[in-house]
Design a protein around this nucleic acid. Structure first.
Lengths: 335, 335
DNA sequence: GATTGGCACTCACAGACCGCGAGTGCCAGC
DNA sequence: GCTGGCACTCGCGGTCTGTGAGTGCCAATC
C-alpha cells in the first residue's frame, strides 16, 4: 500500500472526474490509467483514501469523486503545468493594443474568462503609492466644482464638491493653483499631511476642508475598490455542476463585490497562485465553487485577479492561465 | 361572444399564469376570476383566442398559457399602473446621495433590478451635445501624454497619446493652453471644425493630428457606448422560467453588449416605455425573454434603461418601475 | 344566437415496479 | 502485499398504470 500509488490514484480520480463529470470506479481506473495493478488493489487504496476524507461516493454503488479536501491535496502536489504557446500568443495580441488602464483591465478579464472557460475576476490595480501628477479644479456652476486628479500612472479620478456661491473666480483659481502645486509629485500619505497643513493656513471654511478631503481620497485611487468580472455565462454553460441556486448565489456575490473583495484580500496574503476550494472560501454562498487567484502589479500590495468556477474544474489549466495573465498584466501595469 | 369578455379572459390568463407559473384552465378561471360565466363559455372564448394565436396549450390536456402575441395584446391594452409610494421614496433616497455620474448610473441600475426583480440595464448617458468645459494635457513621460477632457455635465474623459520625445516642455505647454482655449465652451461638432482649422495652422506633425483626433473623440463621450447591468442573479432565482441554455445566452449577450446596444437603439426610436416580447426582439439568443425599456435624459437623443426578464414577467409592475426610474434619472442628468 | 350542463376523450404526471449493471467490501489464496 | 472471486448493494432507466385536470363537442335552455 505504497503512498506513491495512492497519490497516483487520487490524481487519476480527480482527472477522470474533471474530464467526464462522472464518478470513477476501480475497474475503469485499472483499465484506463496505466498503473499496473488490479481493480481489487485499487479498491483497497480507495478505501484508505476515503478513510482520509479525500474522496467520497455519492451513492453506495457508484464510483468515487474527490472531496474538497481531495482537490486540495491534488492541487498541492501539482507540478506547475506548462502553458501552451498558443495561449501565450493570445495573451500578447489580446492585450497589446489596449489604449488605457480601463481597457487593459477590461481586456484582461475577458481574456481570462475565455482561457479558463470560467468566470474571471480582476481587481482594479490599487495604485495607492503612485504619486499625483496634477490636480485640476473646474468650476462647473457657481456652487459646484469638479476636482480631477491625474496620477503618475495615467489614472484619472474625479470628485465633485460644493463651493460657496459668492466665492470670486480669482480666489477659486488661486486655490486651484495652490492645490495643484502642493499635490504634484506627492504620494498619498505625504499628500494628506501637506493638504492638512495647507488647509490650516487658509481662512477656515467648509469648502476648503471638503476640497482637501476629496483630493486626498481621489489620490488614493477613488473611494472604492472595484472588481470587474466576465464570463458569467460559463456558470450555466453545458457541463457546469452548479445548480440554479448555486449560480444565483455566485452571481449575487459577484455583484455585491464586498464578499468577493474580502475573499481576494485574504488570498492576497498567501503567495503566488493560490486556490480556495469549496468550503475553504468560508462563504456559504460559494459552496461548490473554487477560486484560483494570483496577485499582480506592485509586489508589496498586489492587486488580485482570478478565475471562479465549480470545484470540479481543471485546476492545472486554470492555474496556468491565471498565472500567465497575472504575469503579463504585471508587466503592463508596472511599465 | 363579446369582445370585452375575451379581453377580460386573456387578461385573467396572463395574470394567473404570471402569478402561479402554471397553465390556467377554464374551470379555475370561472371560479377564481369574477366574470360570471360558466367554464363552458370560457372554453369557447379560449378556443377563439387560441385561433387568434394569443394563447396556446403546452400539452393537449393542460390549461392555456399566453403566447408572445398574447402578452403583446395584454401589454397594449394595459392602463398605466400606479406606482407605489414606497417605491418613490426608495428611488429618491437611493439616488439622492450619489456623488458623480458613474455613481448615479451604478445606483440606478441596482435600484431598478431590485424594484423589478429582473436584470436591469442602463445605458450610459450619451452626452454628445454637452459642451467641453476644459481640456488638460499632462505629459506623463517624455513620449507619452494624457489628454483629459471635462465636459459641462461633469463628465471626465481621458485618452493617451504619443508626443515627440524631443518636444520642449514650453512648446508642450503652449499647445496645451491653445487647445484648452479653443475647445472650452464648444460642443463636439464645432469643436471638430475648430480643431482641424487649428491643426492646419501648426507646423505639420503627427502628434498634433493625433491630439486633435483624440480630443474630438473624447469630447464625444469616449470611444464606446457602454451598458451596465445588475441583477443577473434574478435570472436563476427560484421561479424563473428560463432554462440553463437560455440563461447562458442572456448572460453572453449582456457581456458582449453589442446585441444589447443595437436592440436598445431600435427601441429608442419608438416612444415612452416600450416592450419587446420574446421573439419580437429579433435575436434568437433572447427567445423567452422580454425587455421593458424607456428613454431618459435628452429628449432628442435619449439614452435607454430597462429591465430584462422571462416573457412571463409582471409587465404592469415592471413598466411602472422602469418609467419611474427613467423619470428620476432624467431629472438628475438634466440638472 | 349566446350560454350552459353533460359527456366522452386525451394525455401529462406521479408512483410503483423491475431488471440491469456498475461498483463495492470481504475473503481466501498466492 | 497483491490478486481473483464472489455475494451484495443500489442507483438508474425503462415500462406500466391510475388519476385527474382539462378539453371539444353536442344538445338543451334562456
Amino acid at each position: 500500500m505504497s503512498e506513491d500509488r495512492r497519490q497516483a490514484i487520487l490524481r487519476a480520480i480527480v482527472e477522470g472526474y474533471v474530464a467526464t463529470h462522472e464518478p470513477v470506479g476501480s475497474k475503469a481506473l485499472a483499465q484506463n490509467s496505466s498503473l499496473g495493478v488490479s481493480p481489487a488493489t485499487i479498491r483497497n487504496d480507495m478505501a484508505a483514501l476515503e478513510e482520509d476524507g479525500l474522496i467520497a461516493q455519492p451513492h453506495t454503488s457508484a464510483g468515487r469523486i474527490p472531496t474538497d479536501k481531495g482537490y486540495r491535496y491534488f492541487v498541492d502536489m501539482l507540478a506547475a503545468a506548462a502553458f501552451q504557446d498558443s495561449h501565450k500568443r493570445a495573451i500578447s495580441t489580446f492585450l497589446s493594443d489596449a489604449v488605457d488602464l480601463n481597457d487593459v483591465v477590461e481586456r484582461s478579464v475577458r481574456l481570462l474568462s475565455q482561457l479558463t472557460r470560467q468566470v474571471a475576476v480582476v481587481q482594479y490595480p490599487s495604485l495607492r503609492e503612485s504619486p499625483v501628477r496634477r490636480v485640476e479644479l473646474v468650476r462647473m456652476t457657481p456652487e459646484r466644482a469638479l476636482a480631477v486628479v491625474v496620477s503618475a500612472d495615467a489614472r484619472v479620478e474625479q470628485a465633485s464638491l460644493t463651493v460657496p456661491q459668492d466665492l470670486a473666480d480669482e480666489d477659486f483659481e488661486r486655490v486651484a493653483r495652490e492645490v495643484n502645486d502642493i499635490a504634484s509629485g506627492l504620494t498619498p500619505a505625504p499628500l494628506d499631511r501637506a493638504l492638512v497643513e495647507w488647509a490650516s493656513r487658509q481662512s477656515p471654511s467648509p469648502w476648503i476642508e471638503e476640497l482637501a478631503g476629496v483630493v486626498s481620497s481621489a489620490a488614493r485611487g477613488g473611494t472604492v475598490e472595484r472588481v470587474v468580472f466576465a464570463g458569467t455565462g460559463n456558470l450555466t454553460r453545458a457541463g457546469s455542476d452548479l445548480g440554479a441556486d448555486a449560480v444565483t448565489s455566485v452571481l449575487d456575490a459577484l455583484e455585491e463585490q464586498v464578499v468577493l473583495l474580502r475573499l481576494l484580500h485574504e488570498m492576497a496574503a498567501e503567495g503566488h497562485v493560490t486556490v480556495r476550494i469549496g468550503s475553504e472560501t468560508g462563504y456559504g454562498a460559494l459552496a461548490g465553487t473554487s477560486i484560483v487567484a494570483a496577485g499582480y502589479g506592485n509586489i508589496e500590495s498586489p492587486s488580485l485577479l482570478g478565475a471562479l468556477g465549480p470545484t470540479r474544474m481543471d485546476y492545472p489549466g486554470t492555474m496556468a492561465a491565471v498565472r500567465a495573465v497575472a504575469r503579463y498584466l504585471s508587466k503592463v501595469v508596472e511599465a
